[in-house]
């Protein structure tokens, strides 16, 4: 779908509480344009709980249930079950959760909801931190990134949640990035025709969390994909395939940019470049990207 064909309707209303340059509202706008008004959102504790604005008003124009941090997927199971009994199964049941609520505290409920074949779309907008509480490390935070709880840089690599989801044998799982709205739109649209649990994870570069200027949200997402630090893929009917630039990288038609191009623009990695270049950790990042690619290429060849 080309941008000019996106529906004009806005379900994220202007005058909301998001930070300027917020990737969550950016992604959610596109997601809701694809889903349309017959959608029920459930949102655990995350930035989007605040972005909605304050009682007695909301900036969201689809029914939205806020729920506790670890509870979004199970609440969605309840919503889906009720809709089935009400004969309203044409309504999209959608979780919109951050990476903390997905990778960490919400993982058990997510696994349970997928295992019991809940007919829903779970979207994780991944800003790689607990941003709403003020930038703490999550299971999605990349190696070496500064957060307020990893002040010298995170010592561990991020969890590969995509593989955890795929291990549940879901009918559909995909990654996306706010910088590629057509790709995101198409992926969301595709889930609407599939019964059962669907998972989409959207890379959501967060200006205050990653320490970059608020006008560069789109650029930061693009660089993540162009350097290979974020892979765009789709897993469908047991097959994994790459999309967009990631497809070109996989096919050797696009030479990934050096990861330093992405790291350098983010304050959270500034300690890797000054006072002097931290070759060891930068190489570790490069190795991790290379290993991840090799692993995913293997998955794609299966």
């Amino acid at each position: 779908m080309a941008i000019k064909d996106f529906p004009i309707e806005e379900y994220v209303l202007p005058g909301n509480a998001a930070c300027p340059g917020c990737p969550s509202t950016m992604g959610l706008r596109t997601v809701l344009k694809a889903l349309g008004k017959k959608t029920i959102l459930t949102i655990p504790a995350c930035c989007t709980a605040v972005i909605q604005s304050w009682y007695p008003y909301t900036s969201f124009n689809v029914p939205t249930l806020n729920i506790a941090f670890e509870a979004a997927a199970s609440a969605a199971s309840g919503i889906a079950a009720a809709l089935k009994k009400l004969g309203e199964e044409d309504i999209n049941v959608v979780v919109w959760a951050g990476d903390g609520g997905t990778y960490d505290i919400g993982l058990q409920a997510l696994s349970g909801a997928i295992e019991r074949q809940t007919n829903f779309l779970y979207i994780c907008y991944n800003n790689q931190i607990y941003s709403n509480t003020g930038i703490q490390r999550s299971g999605a935070t990349p190696y070496a990134a500064w957060t307020t709880t990893t002040v010298k840089g995170k010592k561990e690599f991020r969890k590969d949640i995509g593989e955890i989801i795929i291990a549940h044998h879901v009918p559909y799982a995909a990654t996306a990035c706010v910088s590629y709205p057509e790709d995101l739109y198409n992926k969301v649209k595709k889930t609407m025709g599939i019964r059962g649990p669907k998972y989409i994870e959207i890379l959501a570069p967060c200006p205050p969390g990653w320490r970059f200027s608020m006008d560069k949200t789109v650029e930061m997402g693009k660089l993540a994909v162009e350097t290979g630090a974020w892979i765009l893929y789709e897993y469908e009917n047991g097959k994994l395939s790459f999309n967009g630039i990631s497809k070109s990288i996989a096919e050797g038609k696009y030479k990934p940019k050096p990861v330093e191009d992405w790291l350098k623009l983010q304050g959270r990695f500034s300690h890797l470049f000054k006072p002097e270049k931290d070759i060891v950790r930068i190489n570790a990042i490069k190795d991790h990207i290379r290993d991840t690619w090799e692993h995913y290429k293997k998955l794609a060849s299966l």
């Binding site: 202007p14 005058g15 909301n16 304050w54 007695p56 008003y57 909301t58």
Partner: peptide, 17 residues
């Protein structure tokens, strides 16, 4: 209970930011 209704400008005129 905490029921909120959709409104453009729920946070006021955010253009002032």
């Amino acid at each position: 209970t905490g029921i909120s209704y959709p409104k453009i400008g729920a946070m006021g005129k955010t253009g002032t930011w």
